[in-house]
Amino acid sequence: MPSQLHIVVCAGIVPDPLQTLEPITTPSGPGLKNEMVLPAVLDPWAACALYEAAHLAAKNPGSKLWLVSLGPKAKLQQVMMTVAQKVAFELVPIDGPIGGFPDAHATAAAIASTIEAIPGVDRSKLLIFGGWESATRGACVTLQIVGERLGITEQFQGVDQIDMRDDGSFEVLERIEGGRHQVSVCSSAPAVLGWATGNLAEPRNNPQIGMANMRSMMPALQKAKAATLDTNGLSYVSVSLPKQQRTTRVVKDMTPDQIAAELVEWIGAE
C-alpha cells in the first residue's frame, strides 16, 4: 500500500555553472559581477532532489509536492519557465537576495517559517528534500537547520536513493567516504533528506506539465513574500578569485614510449 507523502523540496537558484564568475563588493556585501545578468539554473543537487521527489510522489498516489525557493522574484520566474516543464509541483517562492554570500542561518530561518506556513502540509507525511550542498555556498548547513527549526531529527545527507516500504518506513542510502553508501531505515516521516545526485536522469520538458504548473506559479510569484536576511554576525574579510596559475611545461615532441617512461618515473617518485 503506497504511502501518501507530502514532499517539500528546498531548492535555490544558482548561476549556470559554466558561467565566468567574478566576485565584487556591493553595498550589501560581497556579490558576483553581473549576478542578475548571468543565466541561472536550479541548484544542481537540489534539482536532483526535485526529480527524485517527483518520482517518489508519482509512485505514491495522493502525494503532494511543493518547491520552496528563495531568490529574486524576476530571476525565480525565469528559471521556473524551464523547471516547470519537467515535473509537476506547486511553487512556494520567497523573494530574497541572490547568491551564496548571504548567511545560511538566515536563509534556513526564512525557509523554515515558509514551510510552516504552507497550508495543508501534514507533518506525519512530511519529507523535506534538498541538495546536500548548494552550488553557491556549498555549505551543507541550510537543510539541517530547516529540519531542526521544524523539530525534525531524522536527517540524512548525501542521499542517493530512497525506497519506500509498504509499512510507511523507508530505506535511505547516504554517500560516505570511499565511494560507499551507508544504509539506514527510517520507520516513518517526517524526515530531512539532503540529496547528492540520486539515480534519475533529468526529465524531459513536457509542455502540458508546464502549462499545469504555470496556473499556480505566476500568481504565487506575484504574491511572493519578501525576506530580509540577517547576517548573524557574519562578516567577510576578503573575497577573491584564486590565483593559482601554474607554469605549464608543454611537451610536444616525445613519443608515447618516452612519455610513458617519464610518467613511470614520476608516479614512482615520492
Partner: peptide
Amino acid sequence: GGTEKLEATRWFYRQRVEAVISRSA
C-alpha cells in the same frame, strides 16, 4: 587565521571563489 579575531578561509561557488570570513556569534 586572523590576528585580532579568528578568521576562517572557505570556498564559495564550488571552489571558484575564495573568501575569508569572521563571526561575532
